[in-house]
Design a protein around this nucleic acid. Structure first.
Lengths: 191, 191
DNA sequence: GGGCACATGTAAGCTGTTACATGATTAA
DNA sequence: TTAATCATGTAACAGCTTACATGTGCCC
């Protein structure tokens, strides 16, 4: 009962290195966090299905209660198939923009606050990306993966930078409308 | 059983002008499309609840089968409250990036294709935004709203432009890695 | 010995989409 | 008169999150 994109995320992560379901979730949160997410409620059932289908195998670890999952060779075939299938995109929702769109009912100050919050969120993102980038660039084991990892990371960086620039321009735009040096009213010093 | 953000979208749209549930959906799709969406399955039940609460009123139109909904004054109060509440953000998923992240299993050509598809999608968006911008700037009726509308539109423009730039740089990055003029192997003509 | 991170799993529930049923109105 | 668009509504279902139950291993 697991979705194909969940399978892709799991098989993809396991193709890098074997790990537990718990670690899988941490890895997806930390590394794919800016464009993907999976919760336990999806990961564990998906792992069971994948195991039953022979796409992953469960290696009982040192601790009897935990298992490490590894991708099998048929699992790698499956991965190559899944990564070729387009993933149905569901409409994305951006709550802050919805509120800002109706900013007339919100007032100028609170609209500024929304924009400012967006800006600072983007700035935080950018810092995180810098760390991730350093890690990927220092990693000499996954040289075949790193160009792709850097490409998706770069997407996040472009978006976050654009968000910061937008916040600047949006603040300026609203401020200009708020305290309008109207053309109908000339300032004193025209000489 | 309707969510607060759905109510916000509906009341906000009706605060601009009264319309039918059907038109509401078209308006949300066309105008808020790049950051919000609502389907019939949400709109009609939400309208019923809003009507029962007295936040909107149903004006029976010329056609007996269709109604036009208008926001009431208590509805406008509700709108002012709703627009102040932060909207819980659910994690966003970007299928193309997930696939690209595992591009090693996809190969260079198909990875290029994903990037190219993203670029052309962004380019299409930019064209649409140009139309919307022209409409808003020509609109002389909603002068109180237009700064906010332009601000959210501008967000879409920044994002789409950044996506195009990213696509350029990503293609260059992958191409560079694909046909590497390796430093270990010198080309003949060194003189 | 108490707290925290690691670890697995399930159930309940919420959000939102899709598909369908049904019909009126308009334009070709 | 046929097709498209406008219009309302519902039911089934997919997808996903949250909260809970339960336990282990480690470190201070």
């Amino acid at each position: 009962v697991s979705s194909k994109s969940t399978d892709l995320a799991i098989l993809g992560a396991l193709s890098v290195e074997p790990m537990s379901g718990y670690a899988l979730r941490s890895a997806i949160r930390d590394v794919l966090g800016h464009f993907w997410s999976e919760s336990f409620g999806q990961i564990y059932p998906a792992l069971e299905t994948l195991e039953a289908s022979g796409f992953v195998e469960r290696l009982v670890g040192s601790r009897s209660t935990s298992s490490t999952f590894a991708i099998t060779s048929t699992g790698e075939e499956m991965l190559r198939e899944l990564v070729r299938e387009p993933i149905p995109q569901r409409p994305h929702r951006h709550g802050s923009l919805l509120r800002l769109y109706f900013g007339r009912h919100l007032g100028k100050e609170e609209s500024f606050a929304i924009i400012e919050a967006e800006r600072s969120a983007a700035a935080v993102q950018l810092e995180m990306y810098a760390h991730i980038r350093a890690e990927i660039e220092a990693d000499e084991v996954h040289l075949a993966d790193s160009p792709y990892w850097l490409t998706t990371l770069s997407f996040g960086e472009y978006m976050a930078k654009a968000a910061v620039e937008w916040a600047d321009s949006a603040t300026a735009l609203l401020a200009e409308q708020g305290a309008p040096a109207k053309q109908t009213k000339r300032t004193r010093a025209t000489r």
